[in-house]
Every structure is written in C-alpha cells, then in structure tokens.
Design a protein around this nucleic acid. Sequence first.
DNA 1: CCTCCGGATTGAAAGGTTTCACAAATCTGG
DNA 2: CCAGATTTGTGAAACCTTTCAATCCGGAGG
Lengths: 345, 345
Amino acid sequence: MVVREPGAEPRVAGMKDVAAAAGVSLGTVSNVLNRPDRVSPATRAKVEAAMAELRFVRNESARQLRAGRSRVLAYVMLDGSNPFFTDVAAGMEDAADAGDLSLFLCNSAHQPSREAAYLGRLEQQRVQGILITPVDPDAPVLHEIARRGTPVVVVDRTPGGTTLCSVAVDDVYGGEIAVRHLVEQGHERIAFVGNHPSVGQVRDRRLGAMRALEAAGLGPDHLVDLTTSALTVADGRGAGERLAGLPSSVRPTAAFCANDLVALGLLQTCANLRMRVPDDLAIVGYDDIEFAAAAAVPLTSVRQPRRRLGRTAAELLLAETTETGHEHRQVVFTPELVVRTSTLR
Amino acid sequence: MVVREPGAEPRVAGMKDVAAAAGVSLGTVSNVLNRPDRVSPATRAKVEAAMAELRFVRNESARQLRAGRSRVLAYVMLDGSNPFFTDVAAGMEDAADAGDLSLFLCNSAHQPSREAAYLGRLEQQRVQGILITPVDPDAPVLHEIARRGTPVVVVDRTPGGTTLCSVAVDDVYGGEIAVRHLVEQGHERIAFVGNHPSVGQVRDRRLGAMRALEAAGLGPDHLVDLTTSALTVADGRGAGERLAGLPSSVRPTAAFCANDLVALGLLQTCANLRMRVPDDLAIVGYDDIEFAAAAAVPLTSVRQPRRRLGRTAAELLLAETTETGHEHRQVVFTPELVVRTSTLR
DNA sequence: CCTCCGGATTGAAAGGTTTCACAAATCTGG
DNA sequence: CCAGATTTGTGAAACCTTTCAATCCGGAGG
C-alpha cells in the first residue's frame, strides 16, 4: 500500500507509518520485527495487521547502515558460461543457505574492467565477504580490499603468499594422474592441448603431465605441445585439425586437454575426420563437466570436487567473519580421474 | 586505512573523517564525489588526497537510504547450470553496463523457496528492478512486488495478463519450423521428447510440432510422445533407450527434443546403441546452446536470440524506471532453425 | 498502603550520505 | 571603489532502521 500525502509523491510505507497505523511507537514495531517475544501477543497482532495493510517492506539499506554489514555474499566468477563455475557457485549456495545468507553472482567474463567494477560495488555495498576467481590471482586489489575489512576468498586459484584464504585443486597431481593413465594404456606420444602455460593452472597441469612421463621413463619429447589461444570448444577443434595434419610417424596417439571444452572440440574434429576415439586417438579432458559424460564418446576427465570447492570457500569466508583471531587458510583439494570410453580401447 | 580511537574498535573511515583530515566540511566532500566541477581544483586535490590516505570507501547503504533506490539490477534465473540462462544473463549485462548499473545474478535452481527468498531480499534491498524467469510465471507474488514499486520483467515466460513487462520467444513457431524441417526431410513418424507439457513452453513447442504435421497433411498420430520427467541429459538418455526398444514398425525416424540437453542425451544413447544419426534417427534440439554445435554429430537446433532476449529485458526494465506513464510491453522474439548434421542425410 | 519487581513499551540517538538554502569570498564591469 | 553576479564552501535536515536506557503499569510481597 502506498501512502499518499496531499501534494506529495506516493511513498512506500516505513516503520513510522506502521507504528502510526497500529497506534504504537516506532520501537515497538522494531521489536515485533527483531524480538517478537518481547512484545505482547495483542500488540504484535495489531502491528502485524498494520504491516500487512500497508504492505510494509523492510528497508535493507537502513538496516545495514545501522548494522554496518549486510547478509550477502558475492561470488565474482571468471566465466558465467562455463559450467565449472556455475557448479562451484552451487556449492557456495549450499553454504550460504545454511548460514541464512544470500549469494549474489557476478560475472566478470574474463574482463579486468568488469571485475574491478564489481569489486568496487561490492565493497561499497559492504557485503559480508567476496568470493572470487580472479582474472589475475596476484592482483594487489584483492589484498587491498581485504585490508579495508571485506574478507576475500580466492577460489580455484592460489594467490602468492598467505594473506588471503583460498581453495584450489592440485593441478599438478591432476595432470599427473591423467597422463599416468594414458601411459598405462600404452601411449608413448601424448599431445598436451592448452593455451600458453603462463597461467598457473595450465602450467601446473602440464607440469604434472611431464612428471608422469618422467616417472614412466619417458623423456619430455614424448609430450607434444598443441598450443591454443584460449580454452574453448573452437580452440579444441583447431587443435584437432592441426593434430590430424601431422604425419602419422610423429602423430600422438593420445591427447591430454587442459579442460573439457577443448577436449569436446577435439572430439568433434575426430568425429568429422573419421578418427576413431579411443582407437586412433585417446582423449583425456579436465574438469569433468556434465557435458563430458554426455558426449557421444563419453570423455575420460579429471574431476575436481567443484561443489565442495564452492562450499568450502564459502565456509572459509564465514569462518573469517565469525572467528576471532582468524588465520588465513589455503585449502587444496585432490582431483580424481574419471575413466570413460574415450581412453578405453 | 583504519581510524583507531582510544579504546574503540578500528572503524572504517567515512566522509566525516575525510572532511576532518582535509580540513573542509562534509558538504564539500560530498561535492567532490558528486559534483566535482563545483569544487575548486585545489580543494578537490586536498580532499582526494585525504580519501586516498584514509582508504575511504563510499557506503552504498547510506547513499541508497538517501536516494531511495540502488543502482543494481538482479536476474533471478531458473537454472544457473543451463547455458541458456547464462547467455541470457550476458545480454542483460550488456544493457546494464550501458546504463552504469550492476547486474547481480541469483539462482533459484527451480526451487520456489529459494526464489521466494531471493525476491524478498531483493525487494528489501530496493534494487532498481528485478528480471526473473520464474518457476511459476503466474505466481501472484510477481505482481505484488511490482505493485509495491519494484519493476519486474518476466524473461522467457509469458505471464497471463498485461500487467508486467515480459520478453519471450515464440515457441509455437519454434516447434513448427523444427518439425516442418523434419517433414521436408521425408520423416513421417516423429518423436516428441520432453516432459509433460503442462509448462507453457513445452506445450507450445509441441503444439507447433502438431501444426507442422497438420500442414503437411499428417495426423496427430504421427507424433509419438516420449515423456520425460525433466529436461536433462539423463532424461534424454532414458528416452533414447525407450525409443530404441520400440519395434521398428512403429519406431520414429526422427526426434524433436524440447531442449538441447535432452537432445544431447538422446544423441549419446544413439552412439552407444550404434544407431546412426541422422540415418537411423534424425534429431532436432531446442535452444542451440554452444554444446549443440560442439556435439560429435553437430545438432540441428532451434535458436533463440538469447543475448538479445536478455538485453531487451534489461532495456524494458530501464524504460520502466525512467519513462513517465510507462506502458507494460510484451515482446516476443522469433526463433530460427539452425540446420546441422544431425538432420542432414 | 507502600515498595519492589518484571514485563511491556517508549523516545531519542546513532549510523553515513545527499541535498539545499545560505554564507562567504571572489570577480565583473561601470 | 561599489553593486551585483558568480564561484566556492558550509551546516543542518532528511533518509529508515536498530538499540538501549528510561518509563510505565499492574501485581506480588511486606
């Protein structure tokens, strides 16, 4: 309901209006909302009737202003269209629900400017805390925000130093189990498909791959780099064409892809070019997104505990706001290999 | 920087602190922030130095409290893990960026309780407006929120009546072009794979399919319903198995799936059971998500202008907040068929 | 009858920003 | 050097809620 005063804009009803309508003081209305047991049933009923009548909606800004903190968490994700991140977000929602908080998602879409804009707004909104998979995990802005009082947890990246909480997955190990599996299947020439390993993750996965080769007594020349510009399906398709163009004497018999999108692209090219998977080319992906299992040839992939990752990140954030004398923690999860048809001949 | 008063909690610096540090009044600090041209360069420099020194962060709650409205839009999406919705959200972000607004995403994950919780919070936050793909497009709560003053735009659904803005896609037409295409390819017995058509969308798509059959002089018995419980990849797999189990005398030669996830599941079962696509079974999906093109057999699909859908929705919302005497509009886009290998023999 | 007690209610302050009428200082041109 | 215009800066009110000390009231105990 809207209160119309003579000559004034219609105004949304506030607690003052409710108090007047119910014939009680402002403080009583507040008590009804925040400490209902301290109000007599009769009064409470009156006030609640007035609130319904006036369609009262609490003003969260005013609440927050007084309280100093909101009950909102935010996750600034790197790529809203990558199912990996939406799964991580689902895990955060679990934790947020449990703590009676709301989770807002922001999509930076790999754009530093967007990320910065969101961070600014979130800090101004005094959110309880910020979860973020940053474009650059070492950007100083994250530390600055934390120092100014908004807890920050880095997700799926490991920032240098221990001044922030973070959750990540052991990508070296992930790369290792992926390639160890391929070696066990008898492959000796293995392609690594990914963008230039400057980013920590791709670098780590490749490093793990190297270690697995080494452990099998195979030198680094057994890893054939197929470098892409990013990690999309299209990049995977391109890599597939390049791979198919190699003379069979040097062509790898297996490919380890830096993520599932790339692997799916590669798989598609194989289907087009009549290369059989896994007979002509075995493929291992990374992330185990839902579409990996749903591919025509179900994809062997390195599974990260995505939901758990998100849940743990949110829990760390809550711990940081409640604990006194909080110590920043860096949690690292261990991935596991999910073997499917794409590597089983 | 944090102001530490004797015996007090460290407190985040506010405009008052900035004013004191810069030796000016509160009003001047406000002017520096909101109307910098009304302040002499010297004073402005002093104030800006003080802000940097104290690490001042504007308090959005207080701003909003005064302004009555925030500069945030929110999209409550039905399913954050469906790429369709994240693409729609991307379109909204385009529009929000253009209007200097932030877009927050909320994922109801098909749960009415979560949706309700988010709507409550958003209304209390006095967001500029709410974009929503609701679990139930006819839920009265949407109208109530709009009536209380927060504009609501319904996305990808058409609520009854014209009391809300909405953007949607013509699903009847989409079903029609999908099945017309199959008929043109010579198919006469066509499966419709989808959950029970109580939901408007699935019903409409099926209705369009019927119309196309009718137009081709084929009766309703040429459509074979394979009813699923939801619209996931797993449902598609299940439908595929049921389809494969049909005696070949009645088995459809083509399938029209209510969305791409189902189609991908169906495609996977075909691969498992050595049914060739499109030779043994032609498949048309719906939504044209990125993974449709990336499938081993690229999927023919009905493409909705997802990004445009989102952008238009956000623009309608902005129009509603700026226009005087706003008329609610119901925008309907027309989908198009993207023909790929899965129907081309 | 008085005091004391506990529960119910009140009133005012506080929280950080924006806005706006007004004051002060500076400039313009005569 | 003055009147008036312009530029710059000020101070207080308003936004809406929460909190907390203070008050009120009816009843129990003395």
